[in-house]
């Protein structure tokens, strides 16, 4: 698999990361090396093997629908870079 600078830029955009041309070039180099190593998996025949997400057979975990205390809003908001007394504040998104 060929990793191009265009692909790095595209993936960076999906990842919400800004990359300078220098960073893109360096990432292209490093990702190429790693991805070509990942291609090694193609040597292994996995035809007929089902992908395995969970090691243990896990089932949906349900709990009783009971009211329990939660964290105080003012405490949660203290960690936000910008907030009012009640909400997080983000840059304007709708004109």
């Amino acid at each position: 698999m060929q990793i191009t600078e265009e692909l790095v830029s595209y993936v960076a955009q999906l990842s919400r990361l800004r990359m300078s041309p220098e960073e893109t070039a360096e990432m292209q180099k490093q990702m190429s090396e790693i991805v070509s190593y990942m291609d090694k998996l193609n040597e292994l025949d996995t035809d007929g093997v089902e992908p395995l997400s969970h090691i243990f057979n896990i089932t949906n975990v349900l709990r009783d629908d009971t009211v329990a205390p939660s964290y105080a809003r003012e405490d949660i908001l203290k960690n936000a870079p910008e907030h009012t007394e009640e909400t997080f504040v983000v840059p304007k998104t709708v004109e």
């Binding site: 990793i3 993936v11 990942m38 193609n42 089902e50 992908p51 395995l52 997400s53």
Partner: peptide
């Protein structure tokens, strides 16, 4: 993001989960 992106998901991510099963 690359191994999960459209067009590469099966070749990388799903392949790795098959290898995990092995």
């Amino acid at each position: 993001t690359f191994v999960l992106s459209s067009g590469y998901y099966d070749a990388y991510y799903r392949k790795a989960l098959r290898v995990k099963a092995v």
